[in-house]
Design a protein around this nucleic acid. Structure first.
Lengths: 230, 230
DNA sequence: GCAATAGTTATCGTATACGATTTCGTACTC
DNA sequence: GAGTACGAAATCGTATACGATAACTATTGC
């Protein structure tokens, strides 16, 4: 998803700024809490502050940064509560998107998804959380990308973006969850293959995500005693 | 009167512009397709174009206006497809919000909602679509406003905002739907009162909205040669 | 030694100015 | 007469400039 309609046109400075800042947030250059100073970013990108301003506001609308009047913008973080909210929201919209998408998923897509899932299974051996998380996104993308309702699809993308700004992949925290996750993926694929009812699929997709959230919460609750391995 | 800041501090020009333009869209002064010219709006509001620009971008992010580079912004309309997408999305997020909110709804809230619903019932006699639609929003607001997840709540609000820019209230198009709607409201209240399971409430709330959408689609299909309902 | 206040600095918010792009109208050619 | 090319007008995009606001620091009084 390299975005940008690639079509010739020089993107506007605003777009550039938006893409650049977003990239830096997602890849962790700007970690949560980082103070985004307009003038500095503008200078870095070789543009004036106005386009940067606009970019920041767009990112704010997406929830990636928090903006305070006359104070400035900070990368909006991952306090656990935020994570919870985002995951819960995503469980709902992604569940719906997957269900709506299901009838439009062809055999080829299922095969592709299954291949990705097998890769994830391999990945379980010599566990690589980052790669696993990436594959996880690929897998789910295949399932929900056919969603015919662009609004819902957009909400799903935003949710994933928020999560992406969590540097450390979820599965690092709850490695035990990974194996279950792979199994649930397979179950989800079977439901889709067999043309299960929409609400069936939706429920499964939603629970799949909720389970990850629950695992995270359980983990967080238990490690809360011993502070931060971070 | 428009100047006086409702709360404490003088809001920024951007905020003013945002609120002003949004209000004009919702109240129909700027009807769908209306061309929003930055300079003109800036002059009307007595500010420069920069804050207006920002306001427009925010509205774009919310889906109330469509923005095209080097061309300008237009009030993004109500083509039936958009309506469908918005309603479908809203059915999902509002259903979830209502379910999440349900455990936090007290007896007083239920009573208030019921009062509103009775008012709607009265309203059925000498049918006033605009008032009915307003009451409808009041009713649902009571049900979902307690939703503890701010993201979901935000999505619900955005959905309602989009619909608000539909000048003509839905119920004008499908008056037959109004009576059913009132009955379903009562059923929904009973579910909440009796502490029904969350998924029960969610399903009911979602279906309630879907039914309105379906009624609209049926109506549209019969009156016009409504193409593709997807 | 601590608290309150005044001054300083960093950063944001908005206005103005000008260049870039698109759109529309008109004239010219085939 | 129709189509194309040129040019003018409208509008957006961005840079620069300056005023406003909030955070920070040092100083003074107790």
């Amino acid at each position: 998803m390299t975005e940008t309609a690639t079509a010739a046109g020089p993107r506007s400075k605003s777009e550039q700024a938006y893409a650049a800042v977003k990239a830096r947030i997602v890849d962790g250059t700007y970690s949560p809490g980082y103070r985004l100073v307009l003038a500095k970013i503008a200078e870095d990108l070789g543009v004036s502050v106005v386009p940067v301003r606009e970019a920041i506001r767009r990112l704010e609308a997406e929830g990636l940064v928090k903006f305070e009047r006359n104070v400035g913008a900070t990368v909006s973080g991952i306090d656990p509560t935020e994570y919870l909210y985002t995951m819960q929201t995503l469980s709902i919209v992604e569940g719906a998107a997957t269900a709506l998408s299901a009838p439009l998923i062809g055999a080829a897509d299922v095969a592709r998804a299954r291949a990705v899932n097998e890769e994830m299974r391999d990945c379980l051996e010599h566990f690589d959380p980052v790669r696993f998380t990436r594959l996880n996104q690929d897998f789910h993308s295949i399932l929900f990308e056919h969603c015919p309702n662009p609004h819902i699809l957009d909400l799903v993308h935003r949710g994933w973006n928020r999560l992406a700004s969590l540097r450390s992949s979820t599965f690092r925290f709850v490695p035990g969850r990974a194996r279950d996750s792979v199994d649930e993926h397979e179950a989800l694929l079977r439901l889709i293959e067999t043309g299960a009812a929409a609400d069936e699929i939706e429920k499964a997709a939603r629970l799949h995500r909720s389970a990850t959230l629950d695992a995270y919460l359980a983990q967080a609750a238990s490690t809360e005693q011993q502070p931060a391995q971070q």
